[in-house]
């Protein structure tokens, strides 16, 4: 079986290498992409989409299909991580620690003992404890809101500065991961539940594809934002600009949720009981 896989890989690789010489040279100024496509983007980008940053215009408008499937790939990566790692069976831990909330007494329950699971008065404590650290905790409390705000700024200013949905989503996810690191996984769950994360990641891709479908319903091509002008109440160029912003928000949501999902599943080996 392994030999078969090896032969397949070698054959596909050989085919790809066989096709390689037919491509134009890397950075060749005479290639069709450089003579026809790039000048069009550079000349028309700002006039078409009102976005000074031509990369954003190419990424989110001219090649919107690619970006949509990139977002879908990220979403499916999150799904794959969920299906591979998430387990709902409790691991048998030898000893467990619980804290009785009204009194602060810590209980140590040996293997086979009855655990106060599901009671409001008891709070589970990590068996491989997260060390409480005042300095890290306070620093994270101070900077998490600003990192979140910076992430939203990056998403909202994709037209003018380097940035956009992917970068802003990563920063927003990193802020939530920072919060989970500075406290512990269960405290992070109180702010952003697993179900909410799953929902947001799907919602992000839905916003992107849904924008395309709305354009389709209004009589244009898929992801041709100029037909959103009637709904948004602006002219065609500004409609393209706002359309780019809408799909950036979708991408940002999807990336943020998938980052957090990966962290939740990887740090606790899919059990969601205790993390880093």
């Amino acid at each position: 079986m392994r030999a078969f896989a090896l032969i397949t890989v070698l054959m596909v690789g050989g085919l790809l290498f066989y096709g390689l010489p037919d491509f134009p040279d890397w950075g060749d100024p005479a290639s069709p992409a450089s003579t026809h496509l790039s000048p069009f983007y550079i000349e028309q980008g700002a006039a078409d989409t009102h976005a000074p940053n031509v990369v954003t215009a190419v990424l989110a408008y001219y090649r919107g299909y690619d970006t949509m499937f990139e977002a879908a790939v990220i979403f499916s990566a999150g799904l794959a991580c969920f299906f591979l790692l998430r387990t709902f069976r409790q691991k048998s831990i030898e000893t467990r620690l619980y804290r009785h909330l009204p009194t602060g007494v810590t209980l140590r329950i040996e293997e086979g003992g009855k655990t106060p699971e599901g009671s409001d008065e008891f709070e589970p404590i990590d068996s491989h404890w997260v060390p409480y650290d005042m300095i890290i905790n306070l620093t994270c409390r101070l900077i998490v809101p600003f990192v979140q705000l910076f992430a939203l700024y990056v998403i909202a200013h994709g037209h003018y500065s380097p940035g956009g949905g992917f970068q802003g989503g990563v920063l927003f996810g990193a802020a939530i991961i920072l919060y989970a690191i500075s406290t512990d996984l269960r405290t992070a769950f109180k702010r952003l539940q697993e179900k909410a994360v799953m929902l947001l990641s799907a919602l992000g891709v839905l916003i992107y594809a849904g924008t395309g479908v709305v354009c389709l319903v209004l009589g244009g091509n898929f992801l041709d934002y100029s037909f959103l002008a009637g709904i948004l109440g602006v002219d065609a160029v500004m409609a393209r600009s706002h359309g780019i912003l809408i799909i950036e928000i979708g991408v940002g949501l999807a990336v943020m949720a998938v980052m957090v999902m990966l962290y939740y599943n990887l740090s606790s080996a899919g059990r969601h009981d205790e993390g880093l």
């Binding site: 650290d133 300095i135 890290i136 900077i143 600003f146």
Partner: peptide, 20 residues
């Protein structure tokens, strides 16, 4: 300002890991 808040914390996190 960001660096002045985070840099001591990063140093502290590394040294804490070493001691533990």
């Amino acid at each position: 300002v960001f660096v002045f808040i985070t840099s001591p914390t990063a140093t502290h996190a590394i040294v804490d890991a070493g001691v533990r």
